[in-house]
Nucleic acid binder design. Structure first.
Lengths: 347, 347
DNA sequence: CTGTTAGCGCGTTCAT
DNA sequence: ATGAACGCGCTAACAG
C-alpha cells in the first residue's frame, strides 16, 4: 500500500508503521535503545520504500557535513590527480566525501575556495598552497572557525598546521650523491623559481651533497629556469659550453628538455652527460634513455594527508602539542640516464 | 559591541540591527522588496561580523545542494584528471561545487557512489561507467529520483541520458586510414575488452577503414589484450611472426608495450613497423620514436559534460526530445612512429 | 523501549 | 518595507 514516494522521509516510514519518526531514526542508526523487532521492521520498510537518508538534514542537525574540502592547483596535473586518489580512498573508507576546488595557482581563487568551503561547512580542508600565494590570511580564517587544515606538498611552517611533504632536500641530496657515486664530478643543476620552497630545498640538497663529497660548487654550473620542457632546453643550451658531465634537474619536465638538447648536440646519455630528474612523472620511465628520477610517493601523500585530518578530527581536544609534520622520504629511481659502468671514469 | 561569534547566523545579525531574521535574509539575497538603507546596513554588518551563509541550511530549505557528483574510475588516470579539470572549471563558474567518487572500475563501488550522491542530494551526477559494470540499475535509480545524469567517455545508449563521448569509431577509422596513406598494407590491430563500447567501436573503425580502401581484413592480424603495457608487449609478440607493416593499438599504453617488443626484436619504427595509439597520453610525445596517436580533447569533454548538465538543469521542463549526445571528433596526431617518407613502399 | 518536543539555519509564506 | 510564523528532514533530550 505504501507506494514509494519520490523522496521517502523517515516520517513516511513512521506513518507506514504507525510509529514515531524518532523511532525510525533510532532504528536506522542502530541506537541501542530499540527493540530488535521494530528495528528490523523499520529497516525492512526503509528498503522497501527505497529510502535514502537526507544527509543535508542530518548535517544541519548534527553540525557536521562529513565532507572534506580539497584545494589543488589543478586536477590536470598528474601529481595532484594521484594525491586526490589517495585522499579520496582514505576519505571514502571513513565514510567521508571529497569536495574539490582548483586554484589554478591563483591567490584569488584560493581565497574563494576557502570561503566556499567555509560556507559548505566542510569538516576540514586539505590544501596545497598555490604558487602565487604569499598572504596566508585565508588559511588563518579556517583556524578561527575551528576547521582543521592539513597542508600537503606545498606547505608553510608559519601556519602551524599538520602537513605532509616530501623531503626535497634529502631527495636532491641523494640524487646528487647518486651522480657522484656514478663517477661524475662536473655536476650541473637546473633549478626552479627559488621562492618556491620545494625548489629552493632541492638547490640546497644539491649544494650540500657536493660539499660533503669535497666537490667545489661551481656557480657557472647552476642555472635557473621556469620548470618546463622549453625552459629545460634553453637552460641546457647555456650549460653545454661549460662541459658538465652530469645534470641534476629540478624536476622531470626540465630534465626532459635538457635531454633533448643534449641529444641534439650529438652527445650521449649517460656516456657524455648523465642526468637525473625529480618527481617520477609517468613519462620518465618511457623516455630513451629512460630517465633516472626521484619518486615522491604521491598517492601515499594523499593517504597520509587524509590520515592526518582524521587524526586531528578524532582528538578534537587538540592538545597543545605542535602539529605533526609528516615528511615522506623520496627514493632514487635509477634508470638508464645515470647507469654508468662501475668505476667509470670520463676520458 | 557585536563581537563576531565563531559561527555567525542571520539571527545574530538580526539581533545586532534590531530587525527580523527574514529581513536579513532578504537583504543578503537582494530581494526586491527591501529598502536600500537596510540592505546596506545588513551587508555591512554581515561583513563586519564575518558572516558566512550556512549552505547546508540553505540547501535543506531550498531543496537543492548546488553540488554535482562526479564518478570516475580513478583520479590517478591522467585522462580523468583532465576531465575533472574541465568539469570543475565550468561548475565553479556556475557557482556549483564538485564532489568526487572513485569507482576503481568496480561495479560495487560505483553503486555505492550513486547511493552516496543520492544521500548527499546532489543536484546532478556526471559519470564515466566502470569497465566492470554491466547492470545499470543504479543509474536508472537516479532518473527515478529526478536527478539529472550525464555520462562522459564511457556512455551507454540504453540509459537514454545526455552524454559526451569521443567518436571512437571515427578516430580509429582515421588512424587506420592514416596508416594506409603512409603506404602500409598489412595493418594489425591490438584491441581491448570488446564489451567496452569504446574499444569495440575502435575495432569497427579499423575494419571499415580497411574495407573502404579495399584491403582484406586478416583475422590473424587482430588480437585482443587487456589494455596495459604488459599486454601490449605480449600481443605484439604474437603478431610479429605474421609480419605486419603497421599496428593500430587500442590505446597508448598498449602501443607503448608493442613498441618495446618491436624494438627488442631489432626492427625499426616506423621503417619496418609503423605504429599509432589512441588517447594522446602525456608520455606518448616523448617516446623514442615519438608515438602517433589520437587526441581526445579531455578537458573539453569535462567542460561539455558540465555544460550538458546545466542545460538540463535550466529547462527542467525537459521536453520529450531525445537526450543530447555530444560527439567530440578526435584528431590524428602524426608523430615519428608513423612518419614514413611520401609514397614509401616497403621492400 | 517508545513518543513528544524542540531546534539546527535558512527562506518563504501571509500578514501588517 | 518589515515582522511573525512555519517547515525543510533529522536527531537529541526528556518523559513515560
Amino acid at each position: 500500500m505504501s507506494e514509494p514516494a519520490i523522496r521517502t522521509t523517515i516520517l513516511d516510514i513512521a506513518r507506514a508503521l504507525n510509529v514515531a519518526a524518532a523511532t525510525v531514526s533510532r532504528a536506522l542508526n542502530d541506537h541501542p535503545a530499540i527493540s530488535n523487532a521494530t528495528r528490523e521492521a523499520v529497516k525492512e520498510a526503509a528498503k522497501r520504500m527505497n529510502y535514502q537518508p537526507n544527509k543535508i538534514a542530518s548535517s544541519l542537525r548534527l553540525g557536521k557535513s562529513k565532507i572534506i574540502g580539497v584545494i589543488i592547483p589543478s586536477a590536470e596535473i598528474n601529481f595532484f590527480g594521484s594525491v586526490i586518489h589517495g585522499i579520496e580512498k582514505v576519505a571514502s573508507k571513513n565514510d567521508y566525501n571529497v569536495l574539490i576546488y582548483q586554484s589554478n595557482e591563483l591567490y584569488e581563487l584560493e581565497k574563494k575556495a576557502v570561503q566556499t568551503f567555509l560556507r559548505s561547512r566542510v569538516d576540514g580542508v586539505l590544501a596545497s598552497i598555490s604558487k602565487e600565494t604569499i598572504n596566508l590570511g585565508h588559511y588563518a580564517d579556517l583556524k578561527g572557525k575551528n576547521v582543521p587544515l592539513v597542508l600537503f606538498d606545498r606547505a608553510n611552517d608559519s601556519l602551524q598546521v599538520p602537513a605532509v611533504v616530501v623531503n626535497d632536500y634529502q631527495g636532491a641530496f641523494n640524487a646528487t650523491r647518486h651522480l657522484i657515486e656514478q663517477g661524475c664530478r662536473r655536476i650541473a643543476h637546473i633549478g626552479g623559481q627559488q621562492h618556491v620552497t620545494n625548489f629552493n630545498q632541492r638547490l640546497r640538497g644539491y649544494i650540500d651533497a657536493l660539499n660533503v663529497h669535497n666537490i667545489a660548487v661551481d656557480d657557472d654550473l647552476i642555472v635557473y629556469g621556469k620548470v618546463s620542457i622549453g625552459s629545460g632546453r634553453e637552460c641546457m643550451k647555456g650549460l653545454l659550453p661549460r662541459q658538465p658531465d652530469a645534470v641534476f634537474a629540478v624536476e622531470d619536465f626540465t630534465a626532459l628538455g635538457a635531454m633533448q638538447t643534449i641529444k641534439e648536440a650529438g652527445l650521449s646519455i649517460p656516456g657524455d652527460v648523465a642526468i637525473i630528474g625529480f618527481a617520477n612523472e609517468l613519462f620518465s620511465e618511457y623516455l630513451t634513455p629512460s630517465l633516472s628520477t626521484v619518486n615522491q610517493q604521491t598517492v601515499r601523500m594523499g593517504e597520509e594527508a587524509a590520515g592526518l585530518f582524521f587524526e586531528v578530527l578524532n582528538k578534537k581536544v587538540s592538545s597543545r602539542v605542535p602539529p605533526r609534520k609528516l615528511i615522506l622520504e623520496p627514493e632514487i629511481i635509477c634508470r638508464q640516464s645515470t647507469a654508468l659502468p662501475a668505476n667509470y671514469r670520463r676520458p
